[in-house]
Amino acid sequence: MMNRFSNPVLMKELKLRFRAFKSFSGLMFYLAVLCIFVVGFLMIYTQFSGTAFFRPSDSFTMFSVLSVLQMALVMFITPGLTAGAISTEREKQTLNILLTTTQSSTQIIVGKLVSSVVFLILMLVAGLPLYSLVFLFGGVSPSQYVTIFLFYLVTLIAIGSIGIMFSTITKKTIVSMIATYGAMIFLGGITAFFFFIGVSMDQMATGYAGTQNLMPFSPITYFWVSINPGALMLSILYPEITNTIDSLVGISFPIWVVYLIFYLLITVGCLAIAIRKLRANMKTNR
């Protein structure tokens, strides 16, 4: 029964990852960045006196900026962890041997993804003591933190899946890494750019028509903002932003629903491609 659910690749990856010095140095770097930020924030808000007030609203600002910073770090680290998952095995000439075992392609790909996700969750959990400072000063509800954590989880699994897919379909890790960071820049930056262009065009169109009071209706612009991680994070932290977005695109459907569906589809699609392409030289992929 245990054998049925065991994943040797996952166990091996976890063992190797937690034995590698670079994992701990990476974790240390991550926590150091968060520490520097939190201490710096507190110092600035208390004007380096150590006796000034720190209001709950200030605490919320710290939470917001900390969340954005953590998101940026996660988005920066995830491709590094996943984009070499399969291509490194290929480069080290261990992949062929692995593929002649009776493990299925699904087991191998899922093992690789979960090991990376587990490490990223460890990073997020390791940052909890720093977050606890926010709760110390109030202003943030635990449910808000849970929502943010779920948002991280969905996003990092999707980016991880993109990394694994590129790692499977490209021969070299460096190419896979560039492609994954490219996809991440598209999702994080280019979509925001497209949103702003869409909004500008809508405003120009309504301006020319001389119908200033006409509500715009732009599903494409809505789509770009819905799949942007930054936009969703801001809407979680500041729910009033949702009303602004609604008025800009003329659609009042919660963007988190579209975000969740889109990123789940990306995850499933990328994993399916990776599983299919892992044994690309075989007609049947079993």
Binding site: K12, K15, L16, R19, A20, K92, Q93, T94, N96, I97
Partner: peptide, 12 residues
């Protein structure tokens, strides 16, 4: 199967 060229996992 033992291929002509193969690698091993570091740290195992």
């Amino acid at each position: 199967y033992m291929p002509d060229f193969f690698g091993v996992y570091d740290q195992l």
